[in-house]
Amino acid sequence: MGHEVPEFVVDGLVEQTPEGPRLIGTRCAGCNTLYFPQKSSCANPGCDEKSPQPAHLPAAGTLYSYTIQRYQPPSLFRIDDWQPYIIGLVELGEGVRVMAMLTGIEEDQLRIGMDLQLVTQPLYTDSEKGEVRTFKFAPTGKFAPAGESA
């Protein structure tokens, strides 16, 4: 284990690097705008060049806001052992805000502005693909930098 290429819920959103998981976004070489997820162009109306290039997003951010998803979403969302979970809106810098499940924290510990780091965790086990992961954010230092928390 550990060196296998992990299976994610969808291709092209996140990848493992030696420094840990990284979200894959787009930086426009024309106006330097950073986007997530990857974009086919640049939506900045003042940018004429529109030159989207793949880019990693910062793996560390701060909590901008959050909620708790109290009821089970429709079946397109697949998860083993469903129970209510936290969804956070995380500021990653350069104006980029990303929604993601939060992990490694209890509801009463949530503080807007707290430091978070990107991790990946299994959502469910598929009979063909095996363990399937999504990206989440956890309190900084809660899990190993590699981010492959159980």
Binding site: V9, V10, D11, G12, L13, P37, Q38, S40, S65, Y66, T67, Q69, Y71, Q72, P73, P74, L76, F77, R78, I79, I87, L89, M99, A100, M101, T134, F135
Partner: peptide, 24 residues
């Protein structure tokens, strides 16, 4: 796939419409 925002919000985190409003 990842080009569809609606697909992404479901498969990555199951974010329902009320979750968006609740974050606000």
């Amino acid at each position: 796939d990842r080009t569809d925002d609606d697909y992404l919000r479901w498969v990555t985190m199951g974010a329902t419409n009320p979750a968006y409003w609740a974050i606000e």
